[in-house]
């Protein structure tokens, strides 16, 4: 059941529409649980597109097992998705810094407020992001420490590799997730893969996780695969950031997700003009490389990777 949840006329012969598909169980009943799958707030992050499709395909195969409501919102920023733009084109604004919006506000504030109204009240929301075009991430859920008590147990059921509980920050108060969590609608922020691409393996992993979560919530009665046990990081000290010490072209030497020993070479920053290696990027500690740079050109400060310390990962 497709519904337009917000519509605004654009200047020249076009209507901007935000659409939702609601999948209902075959047997109607009162007080059904509801899960919402949200993606495309950042227009250049597409990993969630496959998840929206694949989730529906699998539900369709066992429709009789559906016992709750599944709402799919594949494109919260349609103009951004169409134009390969992270933010909202023409305004150069990050939609994820505009929540909770304002129903009487500007066009974008209005759209944002309509999105809030429509998603609010879900029993669980997944807001699927895909890092950005520079970095690749292993499937993970990021949680603001203010909401960890409610969200960590849900996130543990979602079949991701990592749950990253981060500190509160004022700037993040204008995100979709924060605004809904604040009013009691639980939102899990998923980050996985890389911008502008679809990593099917990660999409399948997350869809397995969504079924597992739906089973736990009583939305799905069919068979589900067991969820993997995620590493949970609560301490900022758990993560090492690898920032480029100088500009150049980054050539990685290890694979994403690799478990590395202190001092191993992650990659080199090279100068193609002179044919020289400018810097060797080495691991500062033993750990797992859960983020790696995908876009090769770096300037001083560019993030090339993040390492989760070995003692937190708990591998041998």
């Amino acid at each position: 059941m497709i519904k337009t949840i917000a519509a605004v006329g654009l200047p020249v012969d076009e209507v901007l529409e935000i659409r939702r598909n609601r999948i209902l169980p075959e047997q109607p009943a009162e007080n059904r649980k509801r899960i919402s799958i949200v993606t495309g707030i950042h227009g250049d992050e597409l990993e969630g597109q496959y998840v929206c499709f694949e989730l529906q395909r699998r539900i369709e195969q066992g429709k009789e097992c559906l016992a709750g409501i599944v709402d799919i919102y594949p494109a919260m920023n349609p103009l951004g998705i169409d134009s390969i733009t992270r933010g909202i084109p023409a305004f150069d604004l990050d939609m994820n810094r505009m929540f909770p919006g304002d129903i009487d506000g500007s066009m974008i504030e209005y759209v944002v407020a309509r999105i809030m109204e429509d998603v609010a009240g879900s029993d669980c929301v997944l807001d699927i992001h895909a890092s950005n075009i520079y970095l690749t991430e292993i499937p993970q859920i990021r949680i603001n420490e203010l909401h960890q008590d409610t969200l960590v147990p849900m996130a543990e059921a979602a079949n991701v590799d990592l749950i990253w509980v981060h500190g509160a920050s004022t700037v993040l108060e204008s995100t979709f997730a924060y605004s809904l969590n604040r009013i009691g609608t639980p939102v899990l922020v998923v980050e996985m893969g890389v911008g502008m691409r679809i990593t099917r393996r990660y999409g399948d992993q997350l869809v397995d996780g969504i079924f597992h979560l739906m089973k736990k919530m009583g939305i799905w009665t069919g068979e589900v695969k067991p969820a993997r046990k995620p590493v949970i990081s609560r301490n900022p000290e758990d993560v090492c950031y690898l920032n480029a010490g100088m500009g150049g072209v980054f050539i990685p030497d290890v694979l994403h997700g690799a478990k590395l020993r202190k001092g191993e070479i992650i990659g080199r920053i090279v100068d193609p003009l002179c044919g020289k290696v400018l810097d060797e990027v080495r691991t500062p500690e033993d750990g797992m490389l859960f983020t790696i740079r995908d876009y090769p050109v770096v300037v001083e400060g560019s993030l090339m990777g993040r390492l989760l310390k070995k003692e937190v990962c708990g591998y041998e």
Partner: peptide, 8 residues
């Protein structure tokens, strides 16, 4: 030269 609806 162009404007959107609901814009101040």
């Amino acid at each position: 030269p162009l404007t959107y609806a609901n814009t101040a």
